[in-house]
Amino acid sequence: MKEQNAGYIRHRMGLAWEMSPGATFSAFHAFLEAGKLAGLRCTRCRKVYLPPRPVCGDCYMPLSEWFEVSDRGSVEGFTVSHHPILDPVTGSARPTPYASLLVRLDGASTSINHYLRGADPRTAAIGMRVRAVWREPRRTLMDLLGFEPTGGGEDAAFPRPLEAPDLKPAARVQVNLDIPFAYAVGRGGRWFCDGLRSGRILASRCGACAKTLVPCRSFCPSCFRRFAESDLREVGPGGAVAAAAGAPSPPLGLIRLDGADTLFVHHVRARRGVRVTALFKPTEERRGDPLDIEAFVPVEASA
């Protein structure tokens, strides 16, 4: 990950959802709590889907026949990864090397993917017999930790019919993500960010369009001309608030900066129509991003 002041802007993207697992998954979870892995069988093609889903994609039939499958199965495919990826569940990198498996559980027609546990990744092989490893109590597929090697052959006792469950949507599941991003700011962004660090707001002058565009950028959005450093113009720091929105805090505004033909988006501590100027943070606190300007404040207040 690059440093903030090396041509990148970093954000931590905090996201939250309350997701509905729906009736199909709620039934699957209810079976799981009772120690059973349940799939849905298509009445037409007789495929047993695991994990279950509401519709057979091949036949376009709604699925309603529940069958139990084994928690043992065979590896149908695998790969060994040596490159650390960000685990979407934990948000941190998974230690390498690790083996990802496609496992078809006895009685299921489809395979599920998960990790190999309790064995050297190099021992992974097609046809290898494996067994699900759970974190107890089992509530959702998130409690499936992976698969470990086991013996024996395919169990013909599966799939076993299950009594149809009471289908009702269960409580929603809270999902939170906090994803770090580093965006390359590019040529135009670099000029803009470096300008902010030196206490200046930079725009690009397009001679062809006869317009001064703030913030400065790599290309003219109207005529597609590539801007050069010699096209940079300092605008502001004074201007007038063209529009203000009373949220978030401090409020957002569109500012008509002196010398610019487009409006600048930033925080304003003034209402529409008021003359304002950019209040920059002290030099040592600037990081080369838009927040180097604290807000636009009324001219009198800045004096």
Binding site: Y183, G189, A244, G246, V265, R272, P290
Partner: peptide
């Protein structure tokens, strides 16, 4: 846009509010 607007907290609500205020102006 993550470079010029994301850190300012602009979203669909505040963009609409700015639009409404510009219209009132």
């Amino acid at each position: 846009d993550p470079i010029h607007m994301q850190s300012l907290g602009l979203n669909d609500l505040t963009a609409a509010a700015l639009q409404a205020d510009a219209w009132l102006a």
